[in-house]
């Protein structure tokens, strides 16, 4: 194994090595950015509400479809991104308010019901949009292949990185500079304590769930011109988000950012060096972190 690895690394350093590393770094970064949008919501929801929201990947995919419909009606891509996020936020709030809230304290019931919603929403996709794969066009202004020297990269991925960075900055401001944000942070640390301090916990839950779902929907629409719309994508992308949440620590913004980038890069270089163990290279760091630091890199202690 080590020999193969060494040989591969050597190969890569020869020839167009510099280019290769740059391209792969950029790819890993951009994919990490997309995963961040999906994983951040999952992480927040878990951190605050202690709900393992298996439906999250499906929110992402339904968001993409809704974004496509909005794009078809209005022709405005940016409207589609916002609209997809908002509709999914409403769906999330609905599910939180009428189902998950009734099951507070029943961890198992909550996770089971979120899986029920995975199946329900999947069938809804089949019913409303059909099983045909679909593609979403991105605006011409962000659709070109940029060249810097001999290094080429798709500009759309750059756009995704920019959006993810803006979202991360926004979340940081929200958590650190607003009163409600500090309530959310308090709830991540300890719900009971926060409640004792006068935080309106049900409201925090609704907002967090809505925000998390919004991010999933928004990320979903953003993924449209990149990954395409394909029934079944939800469960293919969900494991990535879970790895991020576990590695980064549940509820931690900093953790989610770092872990997303890590996952993007490990996924990229893992596929290059050990194509046969593509998922294993992704899950192994996760298992190691679970073993030595079950709360993740930046999670609060269990």
């Amino acid at each position: 194994m080590a020999v193969i690895f060494a040989r591969r690394v050597l190969c890569l350093f020869r020839g167009t090595a510099m280019n290769y590393w740059l391209t792969q770094l950029f790819n890993g970064f951009s994919y990490g950015a997309l995963i961040f949008l999906l994983a951040m919501g999952l992480s927040l929801i878990f951190g605050v509400m202690q709900v393992i929201n298996v439906t999250h990947g499906t929110y992402f995919l339904v968001g993409t479809y809704i974004g496509l419909s909005i794009l078809t009606w209005t022709g405005n891509f940016y409207l589609a991104i916002l609209g997809g996020g908002l509709v999914i936020a409403l769906v999330g709030i609905f599910i939180e308010r009428f189902f998950l809230r009734r099951l507070r304290g029943n961890d198992l019931g909550q996770v089971l019901i979120t899986f029920g919603f995975v199946l329900l929403l999947q069938d809804a996709i089949l019913l409303i949009w059909g099983p045909d794969p679909k593609l979403m066009g991105e605006p011409k202004s962000i659709s070109f292949t940029a060249h810097i020297g001999s290094f080429t990269f798709p500009s759309y991925r750059l756009f995704v990185i920019v959006v993810a960075a803006a979202v991360a900055a926004g979340l940081w401001l929200f958590e650190n500079k607003t009163k409600f944000g500090s309530a959310v942070r308090a709830a991540v640390d300890d719900v009971e304590m926060a409640s004792g301090m006068g935080v309106n916990v049900p409201l925090v839950f609704t907002v967090v769930f809505g925000l998390g779902s919004f991010l999933a929907g928004l990320g979903g629409v953003l993924s449209g011109p990149w990954l395409g719309l394909q029934y079944g994508l939800d469960l293919e992308i969900l494991p990535y988000a879970f790895v991020v949440v576990i590695v980064g620590g549940m509820g931690s913004l900093k953790g989610a950012i770092l872990a997303s980038l890590l996952v993007g890069l490990v996924d990229n270089f893992g596929k290059g060096f050990f194509p046969d163990l593509a998922y294993f290279t992704l899950f192994l760091p996760m298992a190691v972190i679970l073993a030595v630091r079950p709360q993740g890199l930046f999670g609060r202690t269990l």
Binding site: N27, W226, L227, L233, E236, Y240, F269, G270
Partner: peptide, 8 residues
């Protein structure tokens, strides 16, 4: 999901 690593 992402073909970037292979295409690269």
């Amino acid at each position: 999901v992402d073909y970037g690593p292979y295409i690269g």
